[in-house]
Amino acid sequence: MQCRVGHVICSSCHHKLRKKDNCHVCAITGGYNRCIAFDHILESTKVSCSNSIYGCTVKTHYYHQEEHKKSCPHAPCFCPEPGCGFAGSTTQLQRHLTADHMLPATAFAYGYSFTLHMQEGMRVLHRKEEGGPLFLAKFTLVPPFGNAVSILCIDPHAVTENHRFECDVDFYSRTMGWHQHSNFQIISTNLSNGFPGEEASYTFVVPDISSDPHTTTTRLLIRPPKISCP
């Protein structure tokens, strides 16, 4: 907006003026009118995404910047390994964890069960297609109960304590005739504050019956968020 002399002010600041009929620079009366020329300049100006350092090449109008940022596929997630400052998209994080930290990885598809090998430490769970959320499984030996397992969804747009995915776990022991089933909601995080505290992230415990893969089997099935019908 501009006064009769030509001094400009944005509409947000104009709303904050105590005397909207007087120019904030020269005090001339007569109020403000829309500055069409300045509007055209702003309309033609585009800004780079703040995630450009992570590979985003999108440029948007300044007033669409926040909207794009909320769904930008290049928004960063963070490495959970202590002392590592890596940040990048889920695809970049997956490559970093498997190549730089040598974490084992398992590919899966939503809605289909897959075998999960019990091994102390962390394992990357990723979809066969690149992009989208990444998952981490963390195994911690808790004698005498067995292996405590944490499953996390790594999502750059995660809301604190948000549960978007559901997981089914089936544990079988053929020698003991044991079958255990668990169902739970998966916590989503971008790992900006590291791996959640163990007391908050354990999702199920597998009994320490036998580590022989020929006699025990652990299978997971991860379901995507349900889409509500309008």
Rank of each mutant, 00 (worst) to 15 (best):
D21P: 01
C26M: 04
C167N: 11
H14D: 10
I41R: 00
A105N: 11
K128D: 11
P213H: 03
H126N: 13
I222M: 03
A37P: 00
H61S: 12
A200H: 14
Y202T: 14
V58N: 09
D170Q: 12
P225R: 04
A105E: 15
E166C: 05
F145W: 15
V5D: 02
D170M: 14
F114R: 11
K69Y: 07
H64K: 09
G83F: 06
V159N: 14
T216Y: 00
H40G: 00
E66Q: 14
L17I: 08
I209E: 12
E43D: 13
I9W: 10
V124Y: 13
N33G: 02
F145M: 13
P224V: 06
S113F: 01
I187D: 08
K20T: 13
M1G: 09
Y172M: 15
L220G: 00
H74A: 07
Y62C: 03
G121N: 11
G146V: 10
D168S: 12
E166N: 10
Q2K: 12
C49T: 05
R219E: 06
P225T: 05
K70G: 02
H214M: 04
H7Q: 07
G177D: 15
R123C: 15
A200T: 13
P82G: 00
T189M: 04
R174E: 04
K138N: 04
P82E: 06
S71C: 09
H126R: 10
I41V: 07
K16C: 02
L191V: 11
L152R: 11
D21T: 14
P224W: 08
T98K: 06
G85N: 09
Y172K: 15
L97D: 06
P73H: 06
D100P: 00
N190D: 15
M176N: 15
N33W: 00
G146M: 07
P104K: 11
G31T: 02
Q2M: 07
D208I: 01
V5A: 04
F108W: 11
D168Q: 12
E66D: 13
A27Q: 08
C10R: 04
W178M: 12
D21V: 13
H101S: 09
E120D: 10
P76C: 09
E129L: 14
I187F: 05
D100A: 07
S210D: 06
Y54L: 07
A137S: 15
R18D: 14
I151S: 04
A37Y: 00
F38T: 02
F165H: 15
C35K: 00
T106A: 10
I36L: 07
I227M: 08
P213A: 02
C26E: 01
R18H: 10
H24Q: 05
S192M: 07
P156R: 02
D208E: 07
C56D: 01
G131V: 15
Q65K: 09
V169N: 02
C23Q: 05
D170L: 14
P213M: 04
T45M: 04
M1W: 11
S188F: 01
A107N: 13
C13W: 08
H74I: 03
H214T: 11
T115C: 08
T189F: 11
M122S: 09
T216W: 00
T98A: 04
F78K: 07
C84Y: 01
T29E: 12
H179V: 14
C77Q: 01
V124H: 10
A107S: 15
V205A: 12
P225Q: 08
L103M: 14
F114C: 05
I151A: 06
T45Q: 02
T57I: 11
S50G: 06
P213L: 06
L152T: 09
C13V: 05
T90K: 03
